[in-house]
Design a protein around this nucleic acid. Structure first.
Lengths: 132, 132
DNA sequence: AAGATTAGGACTAATAACGTCCTATACTTC
DNA sequence: GAAGTATAGGACGTTATTAGTCCTAATCTT
């Protein structure tokens, strides 16, 4: 699957943080509002934090907030933070894993498709999505 | 993953059959030439046959041949025969599995992406690919 | 110091991908 | 019509990925 459930959850919680009234939110809150298993969500936030998309603060009244404006966070950014990029096909990602890539006439199709998908995901920024 | 190994194998063997000198070929032959595990390939051919992309003949000198001209077989056809369509995201395929799809502002993005991917895969016909 | 919250690794469960094996069935040739 | 060759199809096994839990430590606020 191109988009895993984890990525889907991640998008939801970034969107939640982007709402004006939720500048900072903790795991419990986001978990309840967005219907995401709490412990799983904690992991997701960790990855988003390591990728620099959100910042955390611990202790009482702690939680997470976006570390960039929504206009510069794209679906691609989130996906890369969680899954490490879109996986169309093994040989499109790492041509070393496909010895035939030089011979294979289909290979360029996968590469092309991947580029197009990435382009589209990059276009979709959080501010655009949050406006709907 | 959008394109599974099984689909990838299927594309390879359809391409092989499309070569002029291979009007009919048996599992053993295709397996050797295309580097696909033999028993696995047999399964793949079965699916392609059920989808009407290839025809089989049994017994001595039997094997498989394309049942349509290469110009009307697309990558999408092959993918649908093997995987049953492109799986971008659960909720893009079956909106019943995503109760939030009515509310969710990201949902249309997945649907759109899926349509674009399908469109591109449909454009790529076997005759185009075989020519390279 | 107490309570609340994230950090991070180890672990488990479920699902899908990948592939094998065995028996039945059909066709060709001698 | 018997022997040999090939596909048909279901059951099964294996591995990888996805999804999610749990526990302990570290940090911050009051």
């Amino acid at each position: 699957m191109l988009i895993t459930k984890e990525t889907d959850y991640a998008v939801r919680c970034i969107l939640y943080l982007a709402q004006a009234d939720a500048q900072i939110a903790n795991v419990t809150e986001v978990s309840r509002k967005m219907h995401i298993p709490k412990t799983f969500l904690a992991k997701i936030f960790q990855r988003l934090a390591r990728a620099g998309l959100v910042e955390s603060s611990r202790g009482m009244n702690g939680g997470f907030r976006l570390s960039k404006p929504p206009s510069v966070i794209s679906l691609l950014d989130i996906m890369e933070a969680i899954q490490g990029g879109s996986c169309i096909n093994v040989c499109a990602v790492d041509s070393k894993k496909c010895r035939r890539s030089a011979v294979c006439s289909v290979h360029p199709v996968w590469v092309n498709l991947r580029e197009e998908v990435n382009r589209r995901l990059q276009e979709q920024t959080i501010d655009k999505l949050a406006r709907r």
